[in-house]
Amino acid sequence: MLRQLKLTLFAATLLATGALPASADPANTVAFVPQLIGIPYFNAMEEGGKKAAADLGVEFIYSGPVDTNPVDQLQIVQNLIDQGVGAVSVSVLDASTIAPVVEQAKAKGVKLFTSDSDAPDSGRAVYVAQATDQGLGYAIIDEMVERVGEEATVAIVSGEATASNLNAWIGFMQERAKDKYPKLTLLEPQYAGGAADRAAQIATDLMAANPDLKGIIGVASTTCPGVGQAIETAGKIGSVIGTGYCSPNTARSYLKSGSFGYSVLWDPAKLGYLTVWAGKQLIDGKPFEASVQLPGFDSPTTYDPATGILLLGEPAVFTADNVDQFDF
């Protein structure tokens, strides 16, 4: 019996290890629940959230599932609501990860909202969005024209032909070229699937078939390394400019070698900052204004009352000069 008790105590000590007292004032706390923890993207959001919490004088809780399991995420959200945290933001895996608790949150006065990934029609207070498809599509074409001029031929290498977000971005690229740069020639998009080596093959073929090619856009993050490698191995650094929607960590070596002129995405640290700022606004009961300039942000954030979307602003452009300031 004694031994049993000892073991029980041993196990209980294990449970207590690392236990920390809960935060001082739950009502003045903003929580963010990512889709999973331990990846650079969400780590960057956490950093931004911490910074905002320090600036705004609120507590910040960052807690998420270890894999993309909707029930685990729901459990974390549920517990934050039970704790009576002032505002809870969630990068939802899908609507089911907040649908069961929306009513409960309202009853308890907890502001439940989405960030990074939305659950429309769920009754969330606001959606903090990183970028619009239009903004991303326009930005990559504008930046390209700035580097290669208007009279140029540019190729597009995408990932899966069925991916709706990638196709939306391509659609806005084509729209921008047609409306604003009539002399710009965009070649028909080529699809590489999810493989970087296939993207490299396609990019190599495109350069061989179009000697006047000035730029290649790698639409999916998986196609970026392929495009960069192809430009490097073809010895076309300087004459062909590569780019894509890829994170600084993915694009870094290509930006430094010169095969990539720039990369377009958004800054998750800023998104994390904006998320906590939005939570604080909700806790204080302040309405969102149509346009607000936050400290340290390049462009103002905008709010659309019709859709309930708070938009981070213009997409971020990463170049060889600024890429080392980012780690995601």
């Binding site: 049993q4 073991l7 041993f10 294990l14 007292p21 935060s23 599932p65 270890v66």
Partner: peptide, 24 residues
């Protein structure tokens, strides 16, 4: 979760608990 302990720890603690109970 309520004590805001990192979810990574929780997986390990469940494993330790299983070992403890099986040993007992």
């Amino acid at each position: 979760l309520r004590l805001n302990i990192n979810t990574v720890w929780q997986v390990g603690i469940v494993g330790a608990l299983l070992v403890a109970v099986l040993v007992a």
